Simulated assay, not measured.
Amino acid sequence: MSAEARITFLKLNKTYRIGDIVEGSVVVKTASLLKHDGIQLFLEGFVLIQKSTALLEEKVPELGKQTELISKSVTLSKGGKLIAGTYEFDFKAKLERGEVPLQETNHGACISIQYFVRVEIRRSLLHQNIETIEEIFLEVPSPLDGRKQLDMSYFLTESDVDSPKLENSPKFSITGELSIGGICEIGKPIIGTLLVESSDKSIYSVMIELQRKEEWSQIGSFHSSKIVSLQICDGNVPKNAALPIKLIFPRFRVAPSLSIPNLSVRYSFVISVMFENKDIVTKEYPIHIVRR
């Protein structure tokens, strides 16, 4: 193609909050005379229930359809001609809510919330329109209601694990602290300790996981997916030694906990203990993630 368009932003990280101005330029480069019927910029946001493997068995017609959160357009140029060369068109568009509240960018396994800046150079029926698109990221502060991030003590034994009971289940006692009481703030890691007080079988490894649980009312059940996992120890874990825990929320893969009509996104922190005979026991702790 003899012509192309590119979108650049004043904010290099392309991350905004409600009320911010999305500002930048559209650079059009053409190697020959370019006739067009107008250059239009669109600011769009959608909620998409994706046709993931988790939902392939569900026969719901709404799967794959988008729910519009925001839709704005800006005319950068009316129809005309561009001779060979490079042209720059500045733009500004405000991120503000309409009838539907804006939600934070969320790249989930089933539920996706995304915002885009799209440019379209319209051409005659005999020529293909020129389009380019860039994703931008929206951060939405959470209502905190006075809640704070607090340390929480935990006590884990063979009698209170979430995994199914095993034959000849090992007898063990694990204690520690985690900063998951109250709320968990994006931008602050989950920190804590894990201490093996006793175990009648050697512990081979300990894993921690951050899991996402997505629920959509049309399905009536939730889908759980792993976001990140870390092995905090390997080999014969020593007893009465406080092992440090630190888990950083990966950017763009974690958004604040969400509960709105028809859908919700929740999170949990999971501790998995593997013994020398490969038996695994797990304990799950629900957490509430917020953004300040």
Rank of each mutant, 00 (worst) to 15 (best):
K65A: 05
I174Y: 00
R123F: 02
K78G: 11
I130Q: 03
P61S: 02
V100T: 14
M152G: 02
L126W: 12
G146W: 05
G181I: 01
E58N: 10
Q149Y: 08
K72E: 14
I186G: 03
T86E: 15
K51S: 12
L178M: 12
S159R: 13
K59I: 03
D160V: 14
D145C: 04
P170L: 10
P101A: 08
V161C: 03
G79R: 07
K78N: 14
I180N: 00
I183P: 01
S112D: 03
L63E: 01
V117W: 05
H107C: 06
Q103D: 07
S71I: 08
R118H: 13
T175W: 02
S173N: 11
G85A: 08
E134M: 07
G85D: 10
K171V: 15
F116D: 07
S169L: 00
A109Q: 09
R147Q: 13
S77N: 09
K171Q: 15
G146P: 02
G85C: 11
Y115I: 05
S52R: 03
A84Q: 10
K59E: 05
R122F: 06
F116H: 09
K165T: 12
Y87T: 11
L178Y: 02
Q103I: 15
Q66V: 05
I83L: 10
V117T: 08
I113P: 00
N168R: 01
A54T: 06
T53D: 09
I190C: 03
I111Y: 00
S77W: 01
V117R: 01
K51W: 09
K65E: 08
R123I: 08
G79Y: 05
E177L: 12
Q66C: 00
L150H: 04
E88I: 13
L144N: 09
K72L: 11
I130N: 03
R97K: 15
G108W: 09
E96K: 13
L156A: 05
F116I: 14
P170I: 12
E177F: 08
I136L: 11
G176C: 06
A84L: 09
T75L: 12
I174S: 06
T53Q: 04
S163W: 02
P143T: 11
G187S: 07
Q103V: 12
K51Q: 12
L55D: 01
E135G: 09
Q128V: 12
R123Q: 09
G181Q: 03
S153V: 11
E99F: 13
F172P: 01
E139T: 12
G146R: 07
S173P: 02
L178R: 04
Q114Y: 13
T75D: 07
Q128N: 12
